[in-house]
C-alpha cells in the first residue's frame, strides 16, 4: 500500500516529464530547427554530463545566495510582521514600504544593487531578500491579524497580557499562513538570485547562462536551466516537508 502510494506520487511527474521531453524531441527532429536555437534533449544531456563540474560549482553559488536570502528575508519579514502587529505606528509607517518592496520591479533595481553591493554574492542575497520580502511579511501579518475572535475573548476573560497574547496565541495561530508565504518564498527566491547574477557576477547559474548565451552554447544554457529548475523544486519540496513536520497540529498540513 505504501510502496504503491509512493509509486503513484512519483509516477505522475515522471509521466509529465517524459511527455515534455518527447514533445521537445519531436519538435527538434521534425521541425528542422538549428541546434543553436533549440538543442535536442540528447545534446543537452551531453552538455549536462560534460560540464558537470562547472554546473555544480555554479549551482552551489546560486544555492548559497538563495538560502542566505531565504534565511535573512524570513527573519526580517517575520520580525517586521510581529512589530507591525505589536505597534500601530510601526504598522502605519512600514506597510507602504512593504508594498513598495513588491511594487518596484527587482529587474530594474538589479543593476543598481550590483553597483552598490558588488559583483559578489551580497548583491544577489539582497535581490533574493527583496523578492521574498512581500510574500513573507504580508502572509505572516495577515495570519497574525486573523486570530479567531473566540480565542481573543477567552484571553481577555483571563486578564491576559497583550505581549503574551501575541506570543502564545496570535503567533502560533499565524504559523499556517506564514507557512504558505514561506512556500511561495522558497519557489521565487532563486529567481531573485539568478536575476542578480544575470546583471553582473563572476559565478552562479545566471552568470553561466548569460555567458553560454553570448557564445551560442545553447545546449549548456538549457543544461543550466534544468539544474536551476531541479534545484528550485528540491528547495520547495524540502521547505514544504519541514513545514508540514513543524505544523503537525494544523489539519491542512497533515495530508500526505
Amino acid at each position: 500500500m505504501k510502496a504503491g502510494r509512493i509509486a503513484a506520487r512519483l509516477g505522475r511527474p515522471v509521466v509529465t516529464l517524459c511527455g515534455l521531453v518527447l514533445l521537445w524531441w519531436g519538435i527538434v527532429a521534425l521541425g528542422g530547427i538549428p541546434p543553436y536555437l533549440l538543442p535536442s534533449p540528447g545534446s543537452v544531456a551531453r552538455a549536462l554530463w560534460a560540464q558537470r563540474g562547472l554546473l555544480a560549482g555554479a549551482a552551489g553559488t546560486t544555492l548559497l545566495e538563495t538560502v542566505l536570502g531565504l534565511l535573512l528575508g524570513t527573519a526580517g519579514g517575520g520580525a517586521l510582521a510581529l512589530l507591525m502587529m505589536a505597534s500601530m505606528p510601526v504598522r502605519r509607517w512600514m506597510m507602504p514600504l512593504v508594498l513598495l518592496s513588491q511594487a518596484v520591479p527587482v529587474f530594474a533595481l538589479a543593476p543598481l544593487l550590483v553597483l552598490w553591493f558588488g559583483f559578489g554574492i551580497a548583491s544577489k542575497v539582497v535581490m533574493a531578500v527583496l523578492v521574498i520580502f512581500f510574500p513573507i511579511t504580508s502572509s505572516f501579518f495577515d495570519g497574525l491579524r486573523r486570530t479567531p475572535p473566540g480565542w481573543l475573548d477567552l484571553a481577555r476573560s483571563m486578564d491576559a497580557r497583550p505581549g503574551l497574547v501575541l506570543l502564545r496565541l496570535r503567533l502560533p495561530a499565524a504559523l499556517p499562513a506564514f507557512a504558505s508565504g514561506l512556500r511561495v518564498a522558497a519557489a521565487i527566491a532563486p529567481l531573485g538570485a539568478v536575476v542578480g547574477e544575470w546583471v553582473g557576477a563572476s559565478s552562479g547559474l545566471g552568470f553561466l547562462m548569460q555567458t553560454a548565451n553570448t557564445r551560442f552554447e545553447t545546449d549548456l544554457m538549457f543544461a543550466a536551466l534544468l539544474v536551476l529548475a531541479s534545484m528550485t523544486m528540491l528547495l520547495w519540496w524540502g521547505v514544504d516537508r519541514a513545514l508540514a513536520r513543524m505544523l503537525y497540529w494544523a489539519p491542512d498540513e497533515r495530508s500526505d
Binding site: A160, L169, P172
Partner: peptide
C-alpha cells in the same frame, strides 16, 4: 489551542498572564 497539549490548554490562563 490545537498546537498545545491538553495540560497546557488547561494552564492557558497562567501562561497568558505570565
Amino acid at each position: 489551542q490545537p498546537w498545545a497539549r491538553v495540560i497546557d490548554n488547561v494552564t492557558l490562563g497562567d501562561r497568558l498572564r505570565g
